[in-house]
């Protein structure tokens, strides 16, 4: 708790410095938050280039809205929310209509996720990026950001049913991809069990 308070105080100083015109403060703020926010942007983007664009646009918004931050909540969460909104906006602008493969019944790999813990994070991000855009958005918003289907439907302009369906299909695709790519690992894991 103390650490969190200290962290908030640290951000308060940097924020104040940014607002007062200290030209070194923005870079300091960026250095502290950019890696984590880049991780967020990578999950929402179709590739690394788009993630960089989102990160850039997100920080532009952060610095322009800095005076509006009231220090009432987590600054980190506030910045993260901005990054997510930037990603949603980009998705809206593209309005990509992607045909999703016909739903297929995939074998459940429930029980194998513990073993999947050793899959590199970059690989997990890659399989998320390979999802169809709307599935990717729904999965990220629901799983990573904790949005409800109601909120997702409002943000993306879809129905709640579509949101649920998209989430379900996203899960299945992710499960299938992981199973396909790591089948040998999973098979050996099953045999051990």
């Amino acid at each position: 708790m103390v650490n969190r308070k200290e962290a908030l105080d640290d951000f308060r100083d940097i924020i104040d410095a940014c607002i007062s015109g200290d030209h070194r403060a923005p870079e300091k703020l960026y250095r502290q938050l950019a890696p984590q926010m880049f991780g967020v942007c990578l999950r929402y983007a179709k590739d690394r280039e788009e993630a960089e664009d989102n990160l850039h646009d997100g920080f532009v918004t952060v610095f322009s809205k800095l005076k509006d931050f009231r220090h009432e909540g987590s600054f980190e969460g506030w910045v993260r929310r901005i990054m997510v909104n930037i990603s949603i906006n980009r998705y809206r602008q593209k309005q990509q209509l992607v045909l999703v493969d016909e739903e297929r019944k995939l074998d459940s790999v429930v029980g194998e996720e513990v073993a999947l813990g050793s899959i590199p994070m970059e690989e997990l991000v890659r399989v998320i990026q390979e999802l169809p855009p709307r599935y990717r958005m729904v999965f990220n918003l629901y799983v990573m950001e904790g949005y409800s289907h109601t909120e997702i439907s409002r943000e993306l302009g879809i129905t709640e049913g579509a949101s649920r369906s998209n989430l379900s299909r996203a899960r299945e695709i992710l499960r299938a991809k992981l199973q396909q790519q790591y089948s040998e690992f999973l098979v050996s894991r099953k045999e051990e069990i």
């Binding site: 950019a34 890696p35 984590q36 880049f38 991780g39 990578l42 999950r43 960089e52 990160l55 813990g117 899959i119 994070m121 970059e122 997990l124 991000v125 998320i128 999965f139 799983v143 990573m144 992710l174």
Partner: peptide
């Protein structure tokens, strides 16, 4: 995905 990527922080 949540547990693995919650603190994923690659350097941009």
């Amino acid at each position: 995905f949540r547990s693995r990527l919650e603190h994923y922080s690659p350097e941009p």
